[in-house]
Amino acid sequence: MFKILNYSFFDLMRSRWSYVYFLFYLGLGFILFFLNNDITKAVITLLNIIIVLTPLIGTVFGVMYYYSSREFTELLLSQPIKRSTIFIGQYVGLSLSLALSLVLGLGIPFVLYGVFQSAAIWDFATLLLIGAYLTFIFVGLAYNIALSFNDKIKGFGFAILLWLFLAVIYDGLFLLAMVFFHDYPLDKFALSVTMFNPIDLSRILILLKLDISALLGYTGAVFQKFFGTALGSVLSLLVLTVWIIVPTYFMVLQARKKDF
């Protein structure tokens, strides 16, 4: 497995797209600091970008990588290697290279502008950790979709739809439900609904870290009580981990049954 992981990782590290991705984040980080020097504000701006872009790029790269490396995968399948080894190796290699681009791309400008001397270091670290998590989650989901469709266009379509659903439509439905049922106590409902969407969960984790919690009013108090404690943080990271494990499991299951 490590050989395949290694191969995928370095294959990607050499590819143009990884550089583009890395340079994009690098440029973004520097531009943010060029426009304002405040690290805390830069973290808030980054929040929006990470929440939207990392999942999107994870999804697109995941699908793209699967379809473009199909022939190589078929070659590997003809060798006496376990199928789960091949796919997990590819998946981890891809996710790792994307996460590395993100962490290095954003990390370098922040370190140069003195994040270590700033109080925002933990917020920033959380942000990067969550960005990495989202990369792993969405590459996993994309791999699942790609494995289920032999047709490239269909696979791309569904992957983008999945991203759109989790990033936008889910929140819309969530908002509608809350407005519709606003006569009822909604805090527990809101808490559980966020758990089912990794993007929402990540957003709230960072928002609470950025101390907007007081703004959230009564609901915020419930959330703060939950996420603010060590147990809450551990639990939400656990939920994010489940969001990695479950798609990986289904990926292996699908790979095992699939007729190539």
Binding site: N48, L207, G217
Partner: peptide, 11 residues
């Protein structure tokens, strides 16, 4: 008031 939970969401 509970909808504040969606602050900074893309939607």
């Amino acid at each position: 008031p509970e909808t504040i939970i969606l602050l900074r969401s893309l939607f």
